[in-house]
Design a protein around this nucleic acid. Sequence first.
DNA 1: TTGTATGCGTTATCAT
DNA 2: ATGATAACGCATACAA
Lengths: 340, 340
Amino acid sequence: MVDVAKLAEVSLATVSAVINDSAPVSADRKKRVLDAIRRVGYQTNAIARSLKTGSTKTIGLMIADITNPFFTAVIHSIQEVAYHHGYGVMLCCSDEDPEKERLHLRLMSDRMVDALIIATAGETPPLRALIDSRRKPVVLIDRLLDGVATDAVVIDNVAAARDAVRYLVSLGHRRIGLITGKSTLSTARERYQGYCQALAEAGIAIENALVGAARFGSADGYGAAMGLLSLAERPTAIFASNNLSGIGLMRGIKDSGLRCPADISVACFDDFEWADVFEPRLTTLVQPTRAIGAQAMAIVLEHLQDGGAQRSAARVVRMRAQLRIRDSCVMWPPPPGLST
Amino acid sequence: MVDVAKLAEVSLATVSAVINDSAPVSADRKKRVLDAIRRVGYQTNAIARSLKTGSTKTIGLMIADITNPFFTAVIHSIQEVAYHHGYGVMLCCSDEDPEKERLHLRLMSDRMVDALIIATAGETPPLRALIDSRRKPVVLIDRLLDGVATDAVVIDNVAAARDAVRYLVSLGHRRIGLITGKSTLSTARERYQGYCQALAEAGIAIENALVGAARFGSADGYGAAMGLLSLAERPTAIFASNNLSGIGLMRGIKDSGLRCPADISVACFDDFEWADVFEPRLTTLVQPTRAIGAQAMAIVLEHLQDGGAQRSAARVVRMRAQLRIRDSCVMWPPPPGLST
DNA sequence: TTGTATGCGTTATCAT
DNA sequence: ATGATAACGCATACAA
């Protein structure tokens, strides 16, 4: 920048003024500066600017699993609006590991991101401290934290799970299995709750043997599925409360020599592009991924523009997931005379 | 930091010394500083440090499509090793749009990332300028750029495509379709080349009508597929040279009322978790995604450690993709007496 | 309208 | 072993 000033024969202040047009500059001088910038190949050093202004114009994004198409879609949406507003995004993946999350949080915090959007892998003291400190906006997505006062955008998981299980019940199923996630995750808890509600409504007792614990990964999903499938009295339908565990479940069914939906019905949380091009076409709960990302960013931007002044009460926006019925669930018992 | 110094009753220099242990500090003073750090809740301001040291300890990662599981896997791998070495990663997606890529490049460059890893959406003057300037390490992944002198890690696309098409030929197919990508992408060109080679070996003439142009997205993949499938003399097999176009292809087959593999065989670039849990189990070309990411980061770190001193000649490391044969390709014509 | 001078939070170079 | 002080590149308050 000093080079530019020299070449244009103006002061540093003038150069700065034309770059940010933060002050009126006469036409000829402006032209001279612009020319000089081009000739020198000058690029703003955002680091120096950040140090001065206290804003890095980048937001930190922590998600639990980049392998999961749900998160991938949310990232995409966040990226888009962030960029549109001149923000960059620093991405970290916790791989569902709270310890890794803690480390990454530190990394992003050190780098002075202006705000954080987090799909937490589980509460840690530093995360809570960060939020409580109110030093920078934090918005939680997908997963809530108990008794923490930050904005969040999530979906109504109990309603969603209830819808799916109700549907299974309506088809005649009574032995319905569930593949759940770690109970430290609000989504896992809420989806379990929805499952229970739907069963209770139908007067079906909860059987612990029918709920398989996994950790929202395809490998444990597979393990949990194999457990359920090898039960003496096998479930006739299974609800996978996350898409990766859904994959594991489908693999488990295949490896058990069973067929879906002929032998067992499957419903699955989270939609993905592949869900309807192969057999069976999966019935899924589709989340408004784009809206989730956009909403989270909207909240962040709002805070950033307010200058963090008057922080109103934490607000959590709940969105609805939608049950997309395809072919992986069928009536039970199978009506006679229907070929499979 | 000044607070820490005050509380510990030492100078700033001493505090800095214990933080980076860049100088010997007596035991008691060190303890006092450490204590003070904890009490004040001090966190390093990486921005200020960057300004001083000239290193942000973050690498910029530009990929073409975050929706594509191939890239997702590479990102994961890069993230992992980056973090392990104290680096953060700033992620940008060009969505296969060179213009967007240009803008994002600028954004990351302004933010002074220490190095860049790029899966380019197509050459732009700024990208070439950035590389030629040699101001910071740039390593290309997945897609090469003609006559550009940077390191790169890619796979042998012509061999990979050749393997797949050879396999199709060996099953008896003679009318083999191709869904290709934009010819500005080295991967698209090379895969097309491999397709041609395999056909030439078998004495099969290239028919332009059999190669459908798409842009490595599922929507255009679908369009291209519909074109191929509506041909008067339909291909008996199609090779999709990218996984998203593979999805589009499968959807096209479904919408055309055809069945895979009974009516048409399909092979597809890029493997993904879902590939073998649904029907048909897709035969794919699997790329060493983890190795690609790790290798790219290894090169970056190497450069960063050399201090950018002696830059040897650009080296491109080529890896091999592997044909994973599953069920989506069958013999043609179908042997008599085989029920489908 | 333009220029001068100061500080953002570090690290690094000196003395001490 | 320790402390004072000068940059790093920019934005800005203030003076001209």
